[in-house]
Structures are given as structure tokens and as C-alpha cells.
Design a protein around this nucleic acid. Structure first.
Lengths: 194, 194
DNA sequence: TGATGATTATATCGTCCCGATACATCGGAG
DNA sequence: CTCCGATGTATCGGGACGATATAATCATCA
């Protein structure tokens, strides 16, 4: 997942590790014990290039490593972004996937949202079942825990319903009408191929 | 965390791995790739004992390993349950801690609940800040992600407030009254639960 | 001038946990 | 009788975490 996030962020512009970490935190708080080893691994795998930021002018601050997306990295991003297997809607992956929805094909978006919905609904049913027989087998605190979990699940299902409805409206508006490309606010100008 | 959960469950009765895993799922879905190695480790550390379930009568089903709490294990449980450092209110730990609140001293319970509240409030403020400037720097989907996160945080803060109020009422009822002696209300008495 | 601490920046360590996979045994359904 | 699904134990590779170390830069205040 970090891989996808890094690829996606470097898509915008080359960055050094610290900047990457800060941008990453807008998506999810990855630990730096995760970020740097991943950058190394991706660098070895050829998905990104690292170049020493050489600016003699400044006697610069410890010559930061600047990471830049490579062609294989771009391909890998497309590959990851088009994956809609079961992992794509798991808790740890879903938020990162959503963060790059603007660069995800609409059909994939729908599939991910619906998979996620099924998953959360299933969890919700499990929590309901547990709560239903909570009196017999749970202590008060455990029951409260599941109540919170259930509320979370219900909240997320409603949220997903909104997103799905929005997607449908958009796709419905585009398909029959032909190419619109308008809908500003969805993403700002992601069509620039760099 | 798994260690605490295992210790807590074995506190009730000896169990074999599979049963333990099923009971564990009522708290959180630990993978079996986590459970078995942990059982081994705890066994080596002397926190639990494993005994072959020998029942000649049945030519039994592959002689399951039955785990039983040892005295050091009991001590370890107390130690873990009384810890209220920052880790105790982190996401991964908090649910397990709550699951054994019934065996956690009231003062520790309060400290954990309040730490948790501070933590979630902090997260909430971060999310609010991000949402406030979402128009400039987030795409629509990322903003939605943070909106859900914010709703989750607000939900949990309210939930914590209820729990904390309940704890206070309980402690308030016991302290000034002197010897109440009885801990009732802990396991039954779900009040009106909102 | 120098001490102090916050921020920027990179890196490693041990640990936890996950999902996939493999292997067996058992009971019941077809 | 055989296949299937539950029961049951176990390992593997890998992703991620949090603590920690190190170091340079910068502002501030004494």
C-alpha cells in the first residue's frame, strides 16, 4: 500500500523523503520506519530513482535524496490502481486506494466501492449478531465495544452509499451524454499526462 | 496485545488453540498466523502450559494441545492489565484492554478511557484542520475520506464520554458511601445505553 | 558568544501481525 | 464411497509500527 501511495505522490512531482512523509500523512500516518525502507526497496526495484540533491550554492542541508518516478514506476502505479481484488477494499488498503481515485478508472472505482460496501456490511452483520446475544456471553464493556463497532460500520455503509450514488450519477451522466469531462470538483485536471 | 487477550481468556478456563481463536474473534479477528506462534512464545516463556489432550476413549481427533494458565502467567496478566502507558490507548491495544476492563482496577480504567479520549480528540482536531483547508489541497475523494474519519472520531468521543460518565457515576457511588462492597452494575446494568 | 530546543532529514532495530498456504482429521451429504 | 466443509495445527514471507540514533539547520534568548 505504501508503494501505491509513494508512486501516486511522486506522480505529481519529485520529492525527498521527508516531504513525502508529510504528504503521506494527509492520507495515513505511515511511520518513518516504514517509509525509508520502502523507498530503498522501490529504488532497488527500479520503480523510483534517487538522486542526490546537489546544490553547491547553499552548502546545503545534508544533501537530501530526491526521489523521482521512473517509467516502470508509472506502469506499476497503473497496475496497482487497476487492481480490484479483495485486498483493495481491506481496511489497510482502502484509504490509500480512495486517495488516488481521481486517477482510477470509473469502473474500477465502482467495483472497489461495492466490494468495500459488501465487506463492511458483512462486518456489521457480525457485530449485530454478537450484540444480539451480548447479554448472555459478553460483559458490559465488550458489548459497548461492539456497539461502537456497529455504529462505525453503519456510518461507513451510509458514507459508501453516498459515494456510490455519486459515482452512479456521474457515470450515468457521462455514458448516454457522451464525453462530458466537465464535472469540476471531482478532480482538478488530472488528465495531464506529464 | 494478543498476549493479554490469551492470558485473559485462559483465565476463565484451559482451552486449545482453535477454541482460543474463536473466542479471540469476539474481541478482534486475530489471524491464526499470529495466534499459534504467540502461543508457542508464551509457552516457552512459561506464561502458559501446553498439555496434550489425552483421551484414549475417543481415539481422539489428533490430540489437541490444551493451554493452561500458569502462576507467572497470572502475574503477567495483572502486570499488563495495570499498564496505562500511552500504548494502552492506541488503536490496536484499546479494544483488547476494554475487553478485560471487568478485571481492570477502576482507577486504571479511568486513566485509559481518558487517555483514549485525548488521543481521539487530537486525531479529530487534525482531521478538522485538514477538512478546513480541503478545498485547496485535497481532491474530492480525499476530502470524503477525512470526513468519514472525522465522523468516526466524533462518534468515538461521544461514546467515550458515555463510558467515562458511567465510570464516574460508579466510582462516585462507591467512594463517598464508604463500604459499598459490591461491584454490581459492572456486568449487568447496561443502564439505558442511549 | 554560546546554549537550547524545534525542525528538518535519514536510517535501523526488534516486534507484531497478517494473509496465504500447507497439512491433517472428522462428520455428514450426495 | 467420495467429496466437502468444518476442525485443528503450523509455517512462511512480508508489511508496518514505534522507539531510537544521528546530524545538520535555524531561531531565540541569555
Amino acid at each position: 500500500m505504501l508503494e501505491l501511495a509513494v508512486l501516486g505522490l511522486l506522480h505529481e512531482a519529485p520529492m525527498h523523503g521527508y516531504e513525502l512523509r508529510k504528504r503521506l500523512q494527509e492520507i495515513r500516518a505511515f511511520s518513518c520506519g516504514t517509509v525509508y525502507p520502502t523507498l530503498r526497496r522501490m529504488s532497488r526495484a527500479g520503480l523510483i530513482e534517487e538522486t542526490q540533491e546537489e546544490q553547491e550554492a547553499q552548502r546545503s542541508r545534508r544533501a537530501r535524496r530526491v526521489y523521482r518516478l521512473t517509467e516502470p514506476g508509472r506502469d506499476r502505479f497503473v497496475e496497482l490502481v487497476e487492481d480490484c481484488g479483495p485486498r483493495a477494499c481491506q481496511d489497510e488498503a482502502f484509504d490509500v486506494r480512495l486517495a488516488f481515485f481521481a486517477r482510477t478508472p470509473p469502473t474500477i472505482r465502482m467495483r472497489i466501492l461495492e466490494s468495500r460496501r459488501r465487506r463492511v456490511e458483512q462486518r456489521r452483520e457480525g457485530q449485530r449478531a454478537i450484540l444480539a446475544r451480548a447479554d448472555e456471553q459478553c460483559d458490559r464493556y465488550t458489548a459497548q465495544l461492539h456497539r461502537l463497532g456497529l455504529d462505525h460500520s453503519e456510518l461507513e455503509v451510509r458514507w459508501l452509499d453516498e459515494l456510490i450514488a455519486h459515482e452512479r450519477a456521474e457515470q450515468g451522466a457521462e455514458r448516454p451524454a457522451g464525453v462530458g469531462g466537465l464535472d469540476r470538483g471531482l478532480d482538478r485536471d488530472t488528465t495531464n499526462g506529464t
